[in-house]
Amino acid sequence: MNNIYLDDVIINFGFGTKEEKKNFLREHASKSIYMDLTCYDPKEFYEEFPQLKGIFSALFADEAKRIEIHFREENPLVLNHLKELGYHPIQVSFTSCGFIFPRTISQIINEAYFALEDGIATKEDINRAMKFGVNYPKGPFEWSEGKELYIKTLLEELHTLTKDNRYIPNKALL
């Protein structure tokens, strides 16, 4: 994790375990925290930590650096700072574990891994099929490159939260 300190505001970036994220919030109880919370349940964090004023999903950002951001307390300073760092934050009005894009794409990628495991097609053919059959901007394995840990963590969190076996990550992500 890495942080940007702006007087009483801290913007927390990067991946951490749930406990690491919670410990960070505990250690900074007197500050206003805006945190990358792509992989964990925002409801749990908002309820437990009043100092958490907003959350965003930079872990899944690609070269276009478009991210989702949700404010419990809107702060233009945070928005400007993210923009200065090259991000394009898109404000969302409701929270969902994994936001909208990371959660949807994680499930698409997970299914691509299951299809690969079943020997349906090669990685290259699965990427090609999704790009040229339904116009996805990237193939699932192109999207997942370097993000396997985040995808696995998010799916495990969704599985714990919903008890729905649809979120069990494919073993290749482990």
Partner: peptide
């Protein structure tokens, strides 16, 4: 072209299911 084994939904109709299913759950 993409080679595909004979299986339900082949590649696209299988992998793309979550493009609908997950937003519905969100």
């Amino acid at each position: 072209p993409a080679h595909c084994k004979d299986s339900p939904g082949f590649i696209v109709n299988r992998v793309a299911r979550n493009f609908y299913g997950e937003p519905l759950r969100i």
